[in-house]
Amino acid sequence: MRALLVDITKCIGCGSCVAACREQNRLPVPADGSWPSQPDAQNFTVLKKAAWKGEEYNYRRLCMHCLTPTCESVCPVGALRKTAQGPVVYDESRCIGCRYCLQACPFSVPRYEWTSLEPRVRKCNLCEARVAEGRPNACAEACPTGATIAGEREELLKTARARIAAEPEKYVSHIYGEHEAGGTSVLFLSPIPFEKLELPAGLMAEPLPLLTFRVLSKIPHLVATGGALLAGVWWITNRRQEVAAAEAAEKEKQP
């Protein structure tokens, strides 16, 4: 399964990934080549700066491509889907625009075309077409320092572990995305706390969809027992009324 490994220690903030992403997804490019402070409907990835102990670091924001995506589970019409090859992709033709994916995403990734009359949800698609052809992702291919590399998830996890083991003083001893929200296809290595990279701390290691599935899975039982219970209650009260009516009639007969 395709994944990306982003190593913050290697990022020089050149913006090649942003430019490559725009080209790949045919997104508009401003005259000065700049990008906004957060991803939006026309920028699936952006570069940002984080300050920590007097040093400045560059980091990327993009869709995490969860292994069990929250967006996929919450979409009422199945417009979001995790493919076997790794990308979490969006099917515009199904979307009704309820925006539950925006609300539910633990990484607050999906964006909406707010001013459009036929609005779409927009986000990184992990270069679905490239992945299908076996080519590297556009951002990884464009990265001059290897700060973003593409590969099989298992391989990238091994690489990440090896890097931490080789230079433990350089990294926080944690691969973000190995377990967060049940694991993601985009992995981060960082020299500074992950919260500084806008990656939420304290996310559960289980996939979030379990939270709702525990409740939804009880529905069939609720319907069956509820229906039986209601029928029973109706029968008892109805019978009681019939008996009362019959007794009243009986009394009237006997003077």
């Binding site: 625009g97 609005p119 709702t212």
Partner: peptide, 26 residues
Amino acid sequence: YDLGRPWRIWHALVFWNPRSVMFEVA
């Protein structure tokens, strides 16, 4: 008013995702 594409409200009848609470709500 709230749905981005309200004319597609019937999609929940055709495209199913029973794992979604929003599907149950619909």
